[in-house]
Design a protein around this nucleic acid. Sequence first.
DNA 1: GTGGTCTAGACCACA
DNA 2: GTGGTCTAGACCACC
Lengths: 121, 121, 121, 121
Amino acid sequence: MQFDSNLPIYTQIINLLKTQIAAGKLSGGDKLPSVRELAKELKVNPNTIQRSYQELEREGLVFTQRGMGTFVTQEQTKMQALKKSLALEVVNNFVTNMHKLGFNNKEIFTMIAELVGEEKK
Amino acid sequence: MQFDSNLPIYTQIINLLKTQIAAGKLSGGDKLPSVRELAKELKVNPNTIQRSYQELEREGLVFTQRGMGTFVTQEQTKMQALKKSLALEVVNNFVTNMHKLGFNNKEIFTMIAELVGEEKK
Amino acid sequence: MQFDSNLPIYTQIINLLKTQIAAGKLSGGDKLPSVRELAKELKVNPNTIQRSYQELEREGLVFTQRGMGTFVTQEQTKMQALKKSLALEVVNNFVTNMHKLGFNNKEIFTMIAELVGEEKK
Amino acid sequence: MQFDSNLPIYTQIINLLKTQIAAGKLSGGDKLPSVRELAKELKVNPNTIQRSYQELEREGLVFTQRGMGTFVTQEQTKMQALKKSLALEVVNNFVTNMHKLGFNNKEIFTMIAELVGEEKK
DNA sequence: GTGGTCTAGACCACA
DNA sequence: GTGGTCTAGACCACC
């Protein structure tokens, strides 16, 4: 993984984990990698991982059990809220960019409609 | 303006100018700021701006006149192609991000439809 | 090597390398001298060589591998097209000069025919 | 006219005039422009023109008459020799360049034959 | 004033 | 070591 040097690394790791949780790659109850393990994998100081995990815990997305590790929360409401908020951010970002390019909402809608129509995933 | 340290500065300047051209903030025939002027404004070396302008000229989006300055092309086809390609990039990016979050095309469509309906910009 | 002060140095270096590639002195896959090496040899700034290499890469005649060096493309079509276009330029130049001297095509043909006949290289 | 800064300017003017004489644009007996006139036209010091004319006279291609001006020689032999020698130079140059590109004499002949065939000037 | 080229020297990422 | 980017500052041709 590459880190954008503008955002603090721990923030980028948080976003990475949030995305995985929201997408269901990490489900409720799943164990996150240990701090040392992930630190090694991402070639980052363990303190940085620690800080990311703490922040996720503060937001209620994960919980830690002494001696056991860190786990994704099982509260469905939390997970749904997370998914929604991340999606909202992506959508807003998208719309803002399109507006910058001079497209109005109707045009945006048309383009998405076409794309969905042709792919049918 | 802030520069993201991952992409080369000259690339970011190119993108900035492309967006402005595509959005019509810079119309056909408009004069771009002089190399030195923009360099001063963006706190960047004139050579860096020079490189950006040259790349834009190579792509046919601007043309230069010695001793006169650099100007946005008047070819409508170029500008339309630019707008299309930039939009395509933004849309694809958006869809990719949404897929990463676990949304399928139908869900994406619904969200956009709602958004267009409620704002009516 | 001497540089003609009319054309930019980087252009002349491009032409030099193109000729060597077209003539087969540099074959597909061959490594070009490193930027710094050639700069030293031609008594030119490394940036100037860099620019030449980049232009050649843009034209698809060479490709670069980070940390490895710059190499002549292996695509035969590219190399053949290059040889053809360079030859066309030389021939046209020649014919133009002969026309300036007041020779017509038939006379030019005769001169070349004689030359080929006597040398048989 | 542009001057290539490698060759002395007076040499370049000599070549220019030789070409015009050889091509018949300046015929035997024609008056060359006055030194001052040509100097003004080419934005060059009159001494430079003077030197060019002297050299041409030394080679027997022009002659000067006090108070009248400088004229192209009427000796046909001189003019023919000039045309031949200039042509020889152009041809040799051409062949050398083609050899550099890796073409042999037969290939050169073929290319010229095709070109003459299609244009029929 | 404008853009275009070049140098000298620096720092980076990659291998 | 390699190529890639950037800065600082210079000189040029053109207008």
